[in-house]
């Protein structure tokens, strides 16, 4: 465990909590893509099946349980409790265009052709693109609430910090996981445009709105 990995995990946790609190406090999930949140719930479910097969550390187990619980709570709030506020008309990204190719790729390119490993690979690939329905929704409506942009910032920052963590681990531990690194690079690149808008607009006190 190095500082980049730890701050990456905490940044991920912050993003998840920010989103939950935003929905809970405002009693509304307006502007949030339920599809992205469903994909993240699927990501955590398929990745953390190893909770049943291997123990890494108390930290590892606790964080996995928290991520899974929070992602299911978020999906529950969007599709059940605050369903009336869910902006389904703008959440029109076709998720099958992500899930099907990612599913196929995880069968073809993996570390080991075993059920658990294929599901882990699927979750890594799917996570890298799971934010696309949310970004698509923002591009469609042309704006995002400031709190939603904070959520996206921490979610993007998390994978960027993991990239530094992987460089660190390569040099100091000889650890290198090509699948995670390539997917992590793709994932981080998808946030670059958003990072630019976040720094140039949101951090200067302006609302994030895109030119028509």
């Amino acid at each position: 465990m190095n500082i980049f990995r730890l701050t990456g995990d905490l940044s991920h946790l912050a993003a998840i909590i920010i989103l939950l609190l935003k929905i809970w406090k405002t009693r509304s999930c307006a502007g949030i893509s339920g599809k992205s949140q469903l994909l993240f719930a699927l990501v955590f479910t398929t990745r953390y099946l190893d909770l049943f097969t291997s123990f890494i550390s108390l930290y590892n187990t606790s964080m996995k349980l928290i991520y899974v619980a929070c992602s299911y709570a978020t999906v529950y709030l969007i599709y059940m409790k605050f369903k009336a506020t869910y902006d389904g008309n703008h959440d029109t990204f076709r998720v099958e265009f992500l899930v099907v190719p990612v599913g196929g790729l995880s069968f073809l390119v993996n570390h080991d052709f075993s059920p658990l490993e294929i599901l882990w690979t699927f979750s890594i690939y799917l996570e890298s693109v799971a934010i696309l329905p949310q970004l698509f929704m923002i591009s469609k409506t042309g704006e995002a609430e400031t709190i939603t942009t904070h959520y996206l910032f921490f979610l993007g920052l998390y994978r960027a910090l993991y990239l530094i963590n992987w460089i660190w681990r390569y040099y100091f531990e000889g650890f290198f996981d090509l699948i995670a690194v390539v997917a992590g690079v793709v994932q981080t690149i998808l946030y670059c445009d958003f990072f630019y808008l976040y720094v140039t607009k949101v951090l200067k006190g302006k609302k994030l709105s895109l030119p028509a």
Binding site: R5, D9, H12, R47, D50, S54, I56, N60, M63, K64, Y67, H111, D112, E117, W120, Y162, N165, F175, F176, D177, I179, A180
Partner: peptide, 10 residues
């Protein structure tokens, strides 16, 4: 390397 099969990251 078999290392990667035991995924110790989140």
């Amino acid at each position: 390397s078999q290392k990667v099969f035991k995924h110790d990251e989140l």
